[in-house]
Amino acid sequence: MNPLFPRTSFKFIGLAIGLSIFFISFAASVVLGQTPTSISTAMDAFLRYDASSTEHIVITTTRLSRAVIASVIGGGLAMAGALMQALTRNPLASPSIFGINAGALFFVVTATVLFSVSSLLHLMWIAFLGAAVAAILVFFLGSLGRDGLSPIKIVLAGAALTAFFTSFTQGLLVIDEQSLEGVLFWIGGSVAGRTLEMLEPVLPFMAGAGIGALLLGRPINILTSGEDIAKGLGQKTILIKLLTGLVIVLLAGGAVAVGGSIGFIGLIVPHIVRGLIGMDYRWIIPYCAIFGASLLLLADVGARFVIMPEEMPIGVMTAILGAPFFIYIARRGFSRE
């Protein structure tokens, strides 16, 4: 398959187009919703804030933080997905398929039900931990054996871990029905109802990991040409793999800690991006960040309108978008490897 933008100059143009799509989505996310506002009102809200205007309050308190959070999560998930697909050589790799979301959720529910943790900030750290544990487990289980990481093995390991974590989560929630209401939004995934302060603790990690991901583009290009070749070229493959793994955990863990279980962004976006620009990870990573953020912003805007006046959980939105895509890739098979 030939990429849409084969030449470097085109890739810069593509990046510019991507950025403008991102800004439009961001603006849409700030402006549209149950209280419709206009672009000029939004501008006013930032430049000439009027505390008596409901629209201004809505925009500066809920809409803006929501858009920022959606961008960070979307970009993080997409980058994590791209790195996972590169590392496992598996086109189906993504945080949700590999059980990372389910792991984070299980930890959150355990903390709420058994240890009565209720501070959202603490829960976020716990989710982070759960994501890391699940990621390590999946990579470990998927790479057992002589032939190392095989695509089918790691998908099965992910599905199994998801089933495992989910059933325990359900069990705990049955024991304590009151908690069910409190954690439902983790289960469904949400970028609403969170302030920017909640993003602060994880932001340094995610930003660091994002920069790390950008820097890893070049070594990953070498790694994807084959382990032996990479070693022959003098690459410390183990170190690169470990660093990539760390970056994945930070990005995916941070995303699930803030937004709950939002699936499939990490699956779809890298495929779209590869279709646009080919296999060069130096470009794939920044493209993924921008397109992932845009996609999640748009999904979030969509989630506000599908079943007005209620809001669709965003994790459900992305699953509805993403699962058909997963099935499409599964049908096409692993032939591109």
Binding site: I97, L156, A159, F185
Partner: peptide, 28 residues
């Protein structure tokens, strides 16, 4: 198997949606 896993994810998210949107009595 792979398509089954994809469909399982889809059904799972439908269930989540139904439960998030439904009254709490029927949720539990």
């Amino acid at each position: 198997v792979l398509i089954g896993i994809g469909v399982q994810a889809l059904t799972g998210s439908f269930i989540t949606m139904l439960m998030v949107l439904s009254p709490s009595y029927s949720t539990s």
